[in-house]
């Protein structure tokens, strides 16, 4: 043991370099975030200051007030956009966690013909981007008559493959003997799933909630939703930001509102997410 240092194979010089690199990176990474937060509170004369300044001097809530004025003067009431986003996010996330966990339970705790094959297809689907299937997806939506309905955004979110993958890998760690003893005691398969497995895999479904939430929270409705009264919040906010340079302050306020929710949810669940990711590895 060298000089009583607590960890093996570490030098003080190395630690200092490591710390400096991390410090510089942290500044680089957080600069745009700090900038956005600061801009959201800047009065007009500070926003267009030359040369530009990073930190706000006389913080004001004007930008948020302007945001609400703009929102209340819009054709579709603001509350409707907010409702759409909440509905899409809650139903999409809820369905994904439930269906994904059920499927993961079947794949992880049962051996049946086709199960391995299905899981391999899910893993392959992780390997390509959704853009590849955008056009056929539209065709399928129009066949189902789902274009311009909430369903077109909610239902596909239930089938996200990353969620099923993470859940299945995490469930693989649940000891089979535990489930066996419950079955011997006469518990139905659904009961085993709901009262034994689900409580154990809580970190995993919290992670699924976060991943799915992030995706749906930023959902603009894109190519599927045309009616103004069905459009979600990010779409409305995009329109406000599209007002150009005159709305720079409001745009920063919008960005702040949109980023604060997913980041807060992550802060609350950070350790569970990391625990879930630990099980995520691809075994050979």
């Amino acid at each position: 043991m060298r000089l009583g240092r607590s960890r093996l194979n570490r030098t003080l010089g190395g630690d200092i370099i490591l710390f400096l690199v991390l410090l510089v990176t942290a500044i680089f990474m957080s600069f745009p975030l700090v900038y956005t937060i600061s801009n959201a509170f800047k009065p007009l004369n500070e926003l267009f200051l030359f040369p530009p300044r990073l930190f706000v001097r006389n913080p004001t809530l004007d930008n948020f007030r302007d945001l609400f004025v703009l929102m209340s003067s819009s054709w579709v009431p603001f509350s409707r956009y907010a409702f759409n986003t909440l509905l899409i996010t809650l139903l999409g996330t809820g369905g994904h966690v439930l269906l994904g966990s059920m499927a993961a339970f079947a794949l992880s705790q049962h051996k049946f013909p086709g199960g391995k094959l299905f899981f391999n297809v899910v893993v392959i689907s992780l390997m390509f981007a959704p853009q590849v299937t955008a056009i056929p997806n539209y065709l399928i939506m129009s066949r189902l008559n789902w274009v311009d309905t909430y369903l077109s955004v909610i239902v596909p979110a239930w089938g996200m493959s990353l969620g099923l993958y993470l859940m299945k890998q995490f469930m693989d760690q649940v000891p089979k003997a535990l489930l066996e003893s419950a079955r011997i005691d006469g518990a139905s398969e659904f009961r085993v799933f709901w009262s034994i497995v689900m409580p154990i895999v809580k970190p995993a479904w919290l992670t699924l909630i976060i991943l799915s939430f992030q995706q749906l929270w930023g959902q603009t409705g894109g190519q599927f939703i045309y009616s103004e009264h069905l459009k979600p919040l990010p779409y409305a906010l995009q329109q406000i930001v599209a007002g150009g340079i005159a709305r720079a302050g409001v745009a920063a306020a919008v960005s702040l509102v949109m980023m604060i929710v997913p980041i807060s949810i992550f802060i609350l669940n950070q350790s569970r997410v990391v625990e879930t990711m630990g099980a995520s590895g691809i075994k050979e």
Binding site: L99, G100, M102, A103, F105, A106, L107, H110, F112, G115, F118, V121, V122, S125, T133, P136, N137, I140, V155, P156, W158, G159, S161, L164, E189, F193
Partner: peptide
């Protein structure tokens, strides 16, 4: 097991594999 898998599988096949 198939019953547990089915709801997810139907959606996954419809919106990922078929496309």
């Amino acid at each position: 097991a198939y019953l547990f898998l089915a709801p997810y599988a139907i959606i996954f096949l419809t919106f990922v594999v078929v496309p």
